[in-house]
């Protein structure tokens, strides 16, 4: 029995069974990128490090899917704030894939409405693409009546970065805040045991 206990202690931790999230087979390092945050300051890979980050990709002219997702993410944060075993809350990041219309000031007003701790970022198309292509996030303009009036099709997934800034897990739709919060705690425990 003692030997069995010893053996199990030496075995690598098993990936958790998640309700909604998908864990990457191995955490994927992300190459550096250079975006602008909602204060107009540079936001790079370094800013993803030190904390877990939930990231959602969208645009502020989107009245339906994006507010629904950000409200949902705010609920995840509210659940996690009640967790006693969580020393620091993950960052909530909204990446605007519409830099032509979403300025840092627009983003600040928008994201802070959902959660005062959310951070909005955007950037030049090429820099956005540098980040999104590493994550499998897709987006493209569609429809619209004029150059300023268009819609954007975009990936609806929420990406989870680990505190080393690596692509660690993703959450596809439909999103349920309770399931995502409990999945996050399992993912975090697994990460702590694995590192």
């Amino acid at each position: 029995m003692f030997a069995a206990a010893l053996l199990s202690a030496c075995e690598p931790p098993q990936p958790p069974h998640l309700q909604q999230g998908t864990l990457l087979p191995s955490a994927k390092p992300v190459a550096d990128f250079n975006l602008i945050d909602d204060k107009g300051e540079s936001f790079t890979l370094k800013d993803l490090q030190g904390r877990w980050t939930f990231a959602f990709f969208g645009y502020t002219h989107c009245p339906d899917v994006c507010p629904t997702s950000l409200s949902m993410l705010a609920k995840v944060m509210a659940r996690l704030r009640q967790e006693e075993n969580l020393p620091s809350l993950p960052r909530g990041l909204f990446v605007s894939v519409d830099p032509a219309r979403d300025t840092p000031a627009t983003l600040a007003n928008y994201v802070k409405y959902f959660d005062a701790d959310f951070v909005g970022v955007t950037g030049k198309s090429q820099q956005l693409h540098t980040l999104t292509r590493q994550l499998g996030i897709l987006y493209a303009k569609s429809g619209g009546d004029s150059a300023d009036d268009y819609l954007i099709d975009h990936s609806a997934a929420i990406i989870l970065f680990d505190p080393r800034g690596r692509f660690y897990a993703l959450f596809n739709v439909p999103h349920d805040p309770d399931k995502i919060a409990s999945d996050f705690m399992l993912i975090r425990n697994y990460y702590e045991a694995s590192e």
Binding site: C62, D64, L138, S142, G143, D153, H154, A156, A157, V173
Partner: peptide, 25 residues
Amino acid sequence: DGIARMQHVERIALPAHGSVELAPG
């Protein structure tokens, strides 16, 4: 396939004895 799209529609069908919900998503 994981991509959120929004489309303009000219009409929303309301079948007889049916119910249509306009809801988030």
